[in-house]
């Protein structure tokens, strides 16, 4: 029985690159010695702008159960307005964490028994030299800071590899800046 699986659910809008972000983290996790890495996008009727989600499970051991995550340890949200959508925070464990791209503070998003990490990735990404609306590299910086599961440097390397043809330095810089500007709050 594989009890050590860390379950992370990623929410974004179609076109925002939530799946790419989860894939980058999957690659970094594998390099960090997590032999079990499974990233399962939930498919159906994707349209630009519509809410999409993907499940990422990581474990030291091979993962055999590919079923969607019902009770995540962590939820990463690429657009804070999605927090108002039904189902986005469903199943989140008590003591679990929400990492969200938001101009607001953790206190503004406070939820009972949940840790909150916020960063204004949308603005930071522009500051890093990316086009308005590119947030899937920056959010990884917040994930690195708040999640504490893997080294920032490995994540930055994987960002540069994934975006090797699309402003790799700026994408990595967005994550680096976001790492340093992530605010954490909620339950300790």
């Amino acid at each position: 029985m594989n009890d050590d699986v860390i379950k992370i659910r990623w929410h974004g809008r179609g076109g925002q690159g939530a799946i790419t972000a989860a894939k980058i983290v999957a690659n970094a996790a594998f390099e960090c010695g997590y032999n079990g890495v499974v990233m399962t996008p939930t498919f159906g009727t994707e349209r630009r702008g519509a809410p999409v989600l993907t499940s990422l499970k990581i474990s030291k051991n091979k993962i055999y159960d590919l079923s969607p995550i019902a009770e995540p340890d962590m939820i990463v949200v690429l657009d804070y307005l999605l927090l108002e959508e039904p189902g986005v925070t469903s199943g989140l464990k008590q003591g679990g964490m929400i990492i969200v791209n938001s101009p607001k503070t953790p206190a503004d998003h406070a939820m009972n028994g949940i840790k909150i990490a916020t960063a204004d990735v949308t603005s930071i990404a522009v500051e890093a030299g990316l086009k308005q609306g590119i947030v899937n590299s920056g959010i990884i910086g917040a994930f690195a800071k708040a999640g504490g599961l893997m080294e920032l440097d490995i994540l930055l390397k994987k960002i540069e590899e994934e975006f090797r043809d699309k402003r790799p330095a700026q994408n990595a810089e967005a994550a680096r800046l976001t790492f340093s500007r992530t605010d954490m709050g909620g339950v300790k």
């Binding site: 594998f30 890495v37 499974v38 990233m39 399962t40 498919f43 993962i63």
Partner: peptide, 10 residues
């Protein structure tokens, strides 16, 4: 389909 075709794993 999807469970393997669109899922990422090493």
């Amino acid at each position: 389909g999807y469970l393997l075709s669109h899922t990422y794993m090493p």
